[in-house]
Amino acid sequence: MGDCPLQVKELEKSFKKKLGLSSFRAVDSISFQLYPGEILGFLGPNGAGKTTTIKCVLGLLKPSAGKVSLWGSHPAAPEVRRRIGYVPENPDYDDLFTPLEFMTMFSSMRRLDMSREQMFVILDRVGLSKWENVRIRSFSKGMKQRVSLALALQSKPELLIMDEPTGGLDPVARKEFRDIILEENQRGVSIFLSSHLLSEVETICDRAVILSEGKKVVEGRLEDLMRTEDHYRITYRVSDEQEELEIHAALLQKTIDDLRVKGYGIISVNPLYRSLEEVFLSATSGVGR
């Protein structure tokens, strides 16, 4: 599995409560993987364990059990860290510095030989070209998100790990972020995206993993997750006009036969799709520990 950018196997993370007498299991034996070049949505309600999982993936938290590997190596390995970009949730950088200073220092820390022009290009791409020399102290949450995206893109990463990247953004900025994510993905970058915005995940992700109360409840391709097995839509022709009929799977064959007997031409029979929100709600309700 050396080619797999991210593999999580039986991951568990528990935190000790006060005095260390009892513990709270934030992540409970979850397994999934991210394939090269795909965008994996990582969903779950608040407190489901998404950020904890991401921190384990980045080596910020030590797993209580299980294994996380990036291209088959330990997350803390330097050769692995050079290949990833990270956009944190609610980024907070040292507010006495400017975006350009951060770009300069991070490029030096990552041993990237970047010219100022190259840094300007990235800052321009994330919409910070007019703010490059302004201290982050005066930035809004959305602008700080832009700084963290610029820093993540700086090293031309092969894997982008994004934890609620568009949380504090307005709709226009959200669209810009989405476009950048898709552009990066077209460049071949694998993307691990944690988000609350289901419409966003629905638009850009190939697959999704849904967590609830620390457990994985759903994993699969979005198309498969949203397709219902029990309802179908029949499109047929009635004297030059097109009509549709939604029908339960049990009645499907009988309905098709009836329509044919009546002389209506069947154009298509497709499974009905639910919204991701419906998938999410049905997956996350009723999961108890």
Binding site: R81, I84, G85, Y86, P88, L151
Partner: peptide, 10 residues
């Protein structure tokens, strides 16, 4: 949380 992006990557 300024330590996170620093320790996480570079």
């Amino acid at each position: 949380k300024t330590v996170m992006p620093i320790i996480a990557v570079p």
